[in-house]
Design a protein around this nucleic acid. Structure first.
Length: 207
DNA sequence: AGTGCGATTGACT
DNA sequence: GTCAATCGCACTA
């Protein structure tokens, strides 16, 4: 039984871009313990980031590897912008751009611990179990109803989707290979809060 | 214009 | 554990 986290609603402030590490790997670690806030007409839903992956400069597994295209152009925005794309024709992936303008790299948000708006997320997902609401990159976007409409959004400003501080220091950070890729597959670029029940992936990667 | 292939998920043996 | 759904994109011609 992993611990859960309580955050006081209403005291939340956006992450300042100036405090975001410029390096992609550093940002992937930094985002653990921060909060994704989704504001919709139905209400606010939010979750604590418990798992990330870094897709660094020169990374054959990264979408920016072969240069800018219509799909991946948001990866080349200044750090702190959303890159959202459709994977496997059915699941949207949420990334945070991570480098200087014109440099393509990003951090994939892979799992959240639901905080606010749990009934909204249950409705969006069609499942009740809180542990399963946002455990996986496609599940968390479904829970928060994130799609291509927020691609390119500045996540350092309050709005439809933004990043906020957490109240507590993240616990021990685990490290593993990334999930579901074939190129550059041996690099240890996946980060997660060790012991969190809200982390995705096989147990073998979550030791 | 056609082909192959995913940064996944849910259903099923 | 296996496997199909599903579609935008990159690549070839």
């Amino acid at each position: 039984m992993g611990r859960t986290h309580d955050l006081k609603p209403g005291r939340r402030t956006p992450l300042a871009r100036s405090e975001l590490p410029i390096d992609t790997v550093s940002l992937a670690r930094y985002l653990l313990g921060k909060v994704v806030v989704r504001e919709t007409p139905e209400g606010v839903a939010s979750g604590l980031i418990v798992e990330t992956e870094a897709y660094v400069v020169g990374d054959a597994a990264g979408h920016a590897y072969r240069g800018m295209t219509r799909r991946n152009r948001s990866l080349f925005l200044e750090r702190g912008h959303a890159y959202v794309y459709l994977a496997y024709g059915s699941s949207y992936m949420l990334n945070v751009s991570s480098e200087a303008p014109g440099i393509g790299a990003g951090v994939l948000i892979r799992a959240l611990e639901p905080l606010e708006g749990i009934p909204i997320m249950q409705l969006h997902r069609g499942v009740d179990r809180v542990r399963d609401l946002a455990r996986g990159p496609g599940r968390l976007t479904a829970a928060l109803r994130i799609d291509g409409g927020v691609d390119g959004l500045d996540l350092c400003r309050e709005g439809p989707l933004w990043l906020a501080r957490g109240d507590l220091e993240p616990g021990e950070i685990g490290l593993s290979v990334r999930i579901g890729i074939s190129r550059d597959a041996d690099r240890l670029l996946r980060f997660y809060l060790r012991g969190s029940p809200f982390v995705s992936g096989p147990r073998s990667l979550n030791a």
